[in-house]
């Protein structure tokens, strides 16, 4: 696969798919702007309510407010949810319903250009949303250290991992009803990946299961970076996310080809 993908990396052709997505989203600018408000609402609600009820949480020997504990996890979650909406929902629409990709493939572009264009787009969206999230977080006083800036590149890796997995999953979706299954997977990942409470709350055997969740690895990585608590464990966490992304992308490229140009 790499020999097919690599030559097109610098290619202008995959940027045309990016351009296409941008054009479509420009007609829905209100949606794009409003995306800024969702994390704001969540952080605000936690700041008003749960922050007081929970008090402080001990992370790596340092007590931090509940809002500061939850915020990095919410950033990781928002990367996951964005990937589900864009890579699963929207891609399914273009792949199976509007057949927009079939039209693209009748031009000089090929399947690799389409897949890469979607990845560029996912990254750009993640860059904008994670930056705006970090601004909200700072405005609401939920940041603890200036290292939080490192959450920005980390968010791109997280988004890439989830987008690639999402693209792969999309190729197995046959109808809108299958989206019920998507939420059956997405919701427990969201709720149980130590985003709302530390993994120490779980019994030990369950903790091992939670550690396999990509969202847990992403949230924990972000939390460590945001606090400036660096550790060698971050390397395997990052490697795990990158590996998932690579597997997802490989499957997606193969399956896209099978569906679009049988």
């Amino acid at each position: 696969m790499l020999t097919r993908v690599l030559p097109s990396f610098g290619s202008r052709r995959s940027w045309r798919v990016f351009e296409r997505n941008f054009m479509v989203y420009r007609t829905q600018w209100l949606m794009l702007v409003s995306g800024f408000f969702e994390p704001l609402f969540y952080l605000l609600s936690i700041g008003i309510g749960l922050n007081r009820l929970v008090g402080t949480i001990d992370v790596g020997g340092r007590p931090i407010s509940y809002a500061a504990f939850v915020a990095p996890g919410m950033l990781a979650t928002s990367m996951m949810n964005g990937a589900v909406i864009d890579s699963i929902f929207n891609t399914f629409f273009r792949l199976r319903i509007s057949h927009a990709y079939d039209a693209v493939l009748s031009t000089p572009l090929d399947v690799t250009d389409v897949a890469l264009g979607e990845v560029w787009w996912a990254l750009a969206r993640a860059a904008v949303y994670s930056a705006s999230f970090l601004v909200c977080m700072t405005l609401l006083g939920d940041t603890v250290s200036a290292w939080v800036i490192l959450c920005w590149p980390a968010a791109l890796v997280v988004s890439l991992a989830f987008s690639s997995l999402g693209l792969a999953a999309t190729t197995y979706i046959r109808s809108w009803q299958d989206f019920d299954l998507v939420s059956l997977v997405q919701l427990p990942i969201f709720l149980f990946s130590a985003t709302f409470f530390p993994i120490s709350v779980y019994p030990r055997w369950l903790g091992a299961l939670v550690a396999a969740s990509p969202l847990y690895q992403a949230a924990t990585l972000m939390r460590g970076l945001g606090l400036g608590q660096f550790s060698w464990v971050m390397i395997p966490r990052l490697a795990y996310l990158v590996a998932l992304g690579a597997v997802g992308l490989t499957i997606a490229a193969r399956r896209f080809r099978r569906i679009l140009v049988p």
Binding site: Q28, S98, A103
Partner: peptide, 11 residues
């Protein structure tokens, strides 16, 4: 193509 695959959201 046999079935129109226009970009429905665009002008």
């Amino acid at each position: 193509p046999q079935e129109d695959n226009l970009e429905l959201e665009l002008s």
